[in-house]
């Protein structure tokens, strides 16, 4: 099954410690296991742009669509056997410690 991991910031999480960020290890392990499909960091929300079309009119606004203290800092698309494996993969990601990770199953168009 495919899942998208939203790597999120969390103001309530412990302070980020660069020396404890083992993202390289995580990437190496997950690539070795063949479970990662894509993944990257995202630029901060200050660089976000929101687009809406209403009554045929394009509205472009700066910033994210939701004003929250938690934002998506990155993503990983993974392909693994089930939710328990997805949880295990997410739990090893350093941002599980410094932020939080939301696991969303991919919903392919050819299924209900």
């Amino acid at each position: 099954m495919e899942y998208l991991l939203f790597i999120c910031s969390d103001p309530a999480a412990p302070t980020y410690v660069p020396e404890e960020d083992n993202i390289q290890e995580w990437v190496a392990e997950m690539e070795g296991r063949g479970v990662t499909r894509a993944g990257d960091r995202l630029r901060p929300v200050a660089d976000a742009t929101t687009v809406t079309v209403r009554d045929g009119e394009l509205i472009v606004s700066d910033g994210p669509f939701a004003e929250t203290k938690e934002w998506i800092a990155g993503f990983d698309l993974i392909d693994c056997s089930d939710l328990d494996e997805a949880i295990e993969i997410a739990s090893k990601h350093p941002m599980a410690r410094f932020g939080k990770i939301e696991i969303r199953p991919i919903w392919p168009f050819d299924t209900e």
Binding site: S81, L83, A86, I103, P105
Partner: peptide, 14 residues
Amino acid sequence: RDAGIPYRVPPPRL
């Protein structure tokens, strides 16, 4: 079904 919760007894470490 949709989130892929496995139908099993968890492995020993879990």
